[in-house]
């Protein structure tokens, strides 16, 4: 029997290359996508089976590549355990907030014109929010490293959080202001037929079929989500405040925390990739340029509704504010 050299008792996974001890986050997130760039195919089936081909084309075949994605870290280093703990605290906060406003009979005190506006501008957003959830989870399942996948899983979950709170509001408003607010058919009809929503709907439906992993990331996290959140979080919160709907404003301030978390890891990923492949600055900018016009058209579609509020916000100002917010983000990310 061959002599086996004495080894020090292992302190980290053998596949961990770092000299230091990995953090808990790294222990459970590191190198889990063994199937990325695997030969002859990602999955243990015929190499040409449809999903092997899909991944080879849209993930391994994406122009958005670096040699090693495994050194990327989510700056918030969120594990499942962390995510649940964090969001549980936020959900408790929202519950208490809602509870407090309900105790003061908040919904009944809202004006009819304001509630009518919510039906047009806010309540249908569970359709658009649901698509953001779907796309985040698509991007997640296509990402080349588990560090990226996990961050995107949590982003998709955040979208579901926001959608479900809006569903609650739709119902609870309907108790004081009319059943139509909780009528799925009516809400869906606005989403499908109202002209204000069509540019956004077009944007999101096209986003659904952006199957290249890099384009999916760039389109969603560099354009669509930041623009959408600027409109549906920041601008909505401001509009709500002006119109005395403090509950809606405060809820959206809270959703803003989720949005910022997404922007932090997005920024880190762009910096990571560009550091390793400077030409990715151009690649990402090209994708941003491709998707931005449709995204801004979506904002232009919905902005006129802001002017219909009892305390209106000028449509042009809303559009400008969203574009400014987006551009500021692109500067921060190094793509402007």
């Amino acid at each position: 029997m061959a002599q086996v050299p004495q080894r020090r008792r292992a302190k980290a996974w053998s596949l961990w290359e770092g000299r230091r001890i990995p953090s808990e986050y790294e222990v459970i997130s590191h190198k889990l996508h063994y199937h990325f760039r695997r030969d002859p195919a990602p999955f243990e089936l015929d190499p040409n089976t449809p999903l092997n081909q899909w991944y080879k084309k849209y993930r391994e075949g994406s122009p958005f590549q670096v040699d090693d994605w495994e050194q990327f870290r989510d700056p918030d280093s969120v594990t499942y355990r962390d995510y649940i703990q964090l969001q549980k605290e936020r959900e408790v906060y929202l519950d208490n907030l809602i509870d407090e406003f309900e105790r003061q009979d908040h919904y009944a005190k809202l004006s009819k014109p304001w509630v009518d506006l919510l039906e047009q501008l806010y309540i249908p957003s569970r359709f658009s929010g649901h698509i953001l959830q779907m796309v985040a989870l698509y991007m997640a399942q296509m990402a080349p490293a588990s560090y990226i996948t996990n961050a995107a899983y949590f982003q998709g979950s955040d979208e579901m959080r926001r959608v479900q709170r809006s569903a609650y509001l739709a119902k609870v408003l309907s108790l004081d202001h009319g059943e139509h607010l909780a009528d799925s058919q009516r809400t869906r009809a606005i989403w499908e037929d109202d002209s204000h929503w069509q540019p956004l709907r077009e944007l999101l439906e096209k986003l659904l079929i952006a199957y290249d992993w890099g384009e999916s990331f760039a389109a969603l996290n560099l354009v669509v989500k930041p623009v959408y959140d600027a409109l549906f979080i920041r601008q909505i919160a401001e509009l709500a405040r002006s119109n005395g709907d403090t509950l809606l404003a405060l809820m959206h301030d809270d959703f803003g925390l989720d949005s910022q978390r997404s922007q932090r890891w997005t920024t880190a990923l762009v910096k990571y990739a560009v550091e390793r492949q400077p030409e990715h600055r151009t690649l990402l900018k090209d994708w941003v340029e491709k998707w931005t016009p449709l995204a801004y058209r979506a904002v232009e579609g919905l902005a006129p509704l802001f002017a219909k509020a009892p305390q209106p916000m000028q449509s042009g100002k809303v559009v400008e504010a969203v574009c400014d917010t987006h551009k500021a983000f692109l500067v921060e990310v190094g793509l402007e």
């Binding site: 569970r126 359709f127 649901h130 959608v163 479900q164 569903a167 609650y168 739709a170 119902k171 609870v172 909780a182 799925s184 809400t187 869906r188 989403w191 499908e192 709907r201 077009e202 439906e205 096209k206 659904l208 079929i209």
Partner: peptide
């Protein structure tokens, strides 16, 4: 309100 958390089915138009 549960039904409103899951009614987001719609007909695609642009794709």
């Amino acid at each position: 309100y549960y039904d409103l958390t899951r009614d987001m089915n719609w007909k695609l138009r642009y794709v």
